[in-house]
């Protein structure tokens, strides 16, 4: 396998390095690619194409290399007229045009990706101690509702907590032998966690907008993300220690604390009793029910549901006629025994 694959390895590596090796490299490659295209074109034209052709080219690509075209026209006057060469020049020009466009597109794409990373970077500007403190603070509700509480607009902690939750959920699914018909466990776990985080954040943000709460989307994501710390702790413990009473204690204790913390923050940033009630009621209900769902969906109940769901899947087995006589004979035997015993 590596025998056939190795020769392209070198080429692929070189090509990929040119394409992807760092964003600055890509930018440079794009720029030099453009320059190389122009050079090739000049060579092709000086090899002998018609003057009119050069004029046309000059017209078409005047926004790019006006003076370069001028110099090649100067060289062109000495060259002899060859129609075939002119055609080739046209073809070369088209190819060059395409390559130029492709290079420009790739460069701009790479640049936009780079720019996106730069946009996100401030939200990841944290120290380990800050993350630890915020994790601890996410379990400590602060009873201060007269003054807006501070929310750090930071995404590193929430993102890592969501990934941790994905891992814990995978663990829970495996140990409960959950089977998902359409899709993989991995996809379900990722979809559930990210869907909850992003979906509920956007929903609460929308509600907060309606209720006139002072909170931004990033702050909402951060708040809800750190709120998942309680979920992680609870699920990690209760997936491994199977006591329902223990789970309820954790659900009310740890899950409740993290929910209270979020509620306290939201209350301090909202004005008006009705608005506070709507916002905090929705958030706490969603947050607590999500924990309940995660625990029971992938714990034991699912097995029962799947067993009942698998009923219709059994027909291949039922078609075997042997089963029924066996059952009936067993029934017959037992009834005979019972009759014999009773009589």
């Amino acid at each position: 396998m590596s025998g056939a694959g190795a020769p392209p390895a070198g080429a692929g590596r070189g090509g990929a390095a040119a394409d992807w090796g760092g964003f600055e490299d890509t930018m440079q490659a794009g720029g030099s690619g453009g320059a190389a295209v122009i050079d090739m074109e000049n060579m092709d034209d000086t090899s002998g194409s018609s003057f009119e052709d050069m004029g046309e080219m000059h017209q078409r690509m005047k926004e790019e290399e006006e003076e370069e075209a001028e110099t090649t026209v100067g060289d062109e006057e000495d060259g002899e007229f060859l129609g075939m060469k002119g055609f080739r020049g046209q073809l070369g020009r088209q190819v060059a045009d395409q390559m130029w466009q492709a290079g420009k597109r790739q460069a701009s794409k790479a640049f936009s990706l780079y720019a996106n990373i730069d946009i996100l970077r401030p939200y990841f500007d944290v120290e380990p101690i800050q993350v630890r403190n915020r994790l601890l603070e996410s379990m400590i509700p602060v009873k201060m509702i007269n003054f807006p509480q501070k929310i750090a607009g930071e995404l590193y902690g929430p993102l890592m907590l969501v990934f941790t939750l994905v891992a814990i959920l995978l663990h829970g699914m495996k140990t409960s032998d959950t089977i998902i018909r359409e899709g993989t466990l991995m996809g379900t776990a990722i979809g559930t966690c990210f869907g909850y985080w992003l979906g509920v954040s956007s929903f609460i943000y929308f509600l907060a907008y309606l209720c006139n709460a002072q909170i931004t989307m990033v702050q909402m994501l951060s708040l809800l993300g750190y709120g998942l710390f309680g979920h992680c702790v609870t699920l990690f413990i209760t997936y491994n220690i199977h006591f329902h009473s223990l789970f309820y204690v954790f659900w009310l204790g740890i899950g409740g604390l993290s929910t209270l913390r979020m509620v306290a923050v939201l209350v301090s940033r909202t004005v008006g009793h009705t608005q506070r009630l709507i916002l905090c009621g929705t958030l706490s209900a969603l947050h607590m029910l999500f924990l309940l769902y995660l625990h029971f969906a992938y714990h034991k109940v699912v097995e029962g549901i799947l067993d009942t769901l698998e009923g219709p899947n059994v027909p291949p087995f039922q078609r075997v006629a042997r089963d029924i006589p066996v059952v009936s004979s067993v029934v017959l035997n037992t009834t005979v025994k019972v009759v014999a015993l009773t009589s």
Partner: peptide, 17 residues
């Protein structure tokens, strides 16, 4: 990929690949 993006976002000086 996630680890790499995370390290880039945290200010690491290493290329993606």
């Amino acid at each position: 990929v996630v680890i790499t993006l995370n390290s880039k976002l945290l200010g690491g000086t290493i290329s993606f690949f």
